[in-house]
């Protein structure tokens, strides 16, 4: 029961985050539901892989991105929008904010402690590891989500064909 609740909370907050980040790009109202489903599904899968299968954050993000990309095809067809309209906002809740923050923090600390080689080395290492994780996660998320579109291009490019609402 606790596990179910844990995943529900994870999915719920990812869905709210997806909807909010989507709203910045002015999507059609009918797309919000599908953005929420994709954001929740992707984030829950990553949560599962990281916490129950001991997978690292970058590869978990790759699989979560692929799930979002795959699911975006039928959902975009239902929403009659290009698939990017619903999957880009759904990816954003998986941006590795803490690692990005630590990367920046390490740069600043490195500059401040450059007179002390030991501390400077420590912050340089932190900068490299956090920066690499941030870059890998964003890269894998993007590649993972775009892969299905390239595997099924014909289907991916006809989502708006039957749109009666314009």
């Amino acid at each position: 029961m606790n596990i179910l609740l844990e995943f529900f909370v994870d999915g719920l907050f990812a869905a709210i985050a997806g909807i909010g980040f989507g709203a910045i790009s002015n999507p059609p109202r009918r797309a919000f539901l599908y953005i929420a489903i994709l954001a929740a599904g992707g984030h829950m899968l990553r949560h599962l892989l990281m916490n129950y299968f001991a997978m690292d954050i970058a590869f978990s993000s790759l699989f979560a991105g692929m799930l979002i990309g795959l699911l975006s095809m039928p959902l975009a067809y239902r929403a009659a929008t290009p698939s990017t309209v619903i999957y880009i906002p759904a990816l954003l809740p998986m941006i590795p904010g803490k690692f990005a923050y630590n990367t920046l923090f390490s740069i600043m600390m490195f500059l401040r402690t450059s007179h002390d080689p030991q501390l400077a080395d420590l912050y340089l290492t932190k900068f490299m590891s956090n920066g690499l994780i941030t870059f890998s996660v964003i890269f894998f998320l993007t590649i993972g989500s775009t892969l299905p579109v390239f595997i099924l291009p014909k289907q991916a490019y006809q989502m708006t064909r039957k749109n009666k609402v314009l």
Partner: peptide
């Protein structure tokens, strides 16, 4: 199509603030 109204800026503001708040919970 060009004349279609956008989402209300206040609604967008609220949704974005809620989104970042949810992000904070996820972290």
């Amino acid at each position: 199509i060009l004349e279609k109204p956008k989402l209300s800026p206040y609604l967008v503001l609220l949704l974005v603030a809620l989104a970042n708040m949810s992000f904070c919970k996820l972290f």
